[in-house]
Amino acid sequence: MNDLARTIEALLFIAPEPLEVATIQDITGEGPDGIAGALEEVRGRHGPDTGLELAEVAGGWALRTRGDLAAACDALRARPREDRLSPAALETLAVVAYLEPVTRREIGRLRGVDVDSTVSSLLDRGLIEEADRPHAGPTTYRTTTAFLERFGLARRGDLPTLERFELTGPEAGALRARLEHADLIAEAETGDA
């Protein structure tokens, strides 16, 4: 390994947060290309047969332990209890992640339910935050660095395209058929009343 790669490896080892390329540039005085090459070298050194891996997370680079070693790591250092995210929270997060910056009203309109408490709980967890407001208007929300870290995303917008998740024609047809059946039930129930 050359000196730059060794330096970067050392920095990654002691960095408490994912290390941004700009920070590495400041410290080493090296250009982005040189740093990218050195990062590749560090990555090559920490292959699948080692305990560590180089990962791009939340806009920076981190040297972290490999997933299969989680149990051993937790035996050394207790992990804070993970709070589980409800399906409603995950769906709201998905809406924010794809549409950010987005208002509560827009989230609510899409989800078809009141989202105040879900948005508040995501704010409390630090997964979303208020976005900057260049003009007067309703508060908008966006995802945070903590969101990127928790979901292991390299940067904002590091998501599959939304088109990939759209319903196909037959799927939409099946949905319509389900609703027709639901109408049959609803009719029978209204008749009862």
Partner: peptide
């Protein structure tokens, strides 16, 4: 529907991302 599916994708990501440990 796309957002519901995206939420499932996020849930998968979450499961994968909660294994590595950071300093």
């Amino acid at each position: 529907a796309p957002f519901q599916r995206a939420a499932l994708w996020l849930a998968d990501r979450l499961r994968a991302a909660e294994r590595p440990r950071y300093r």
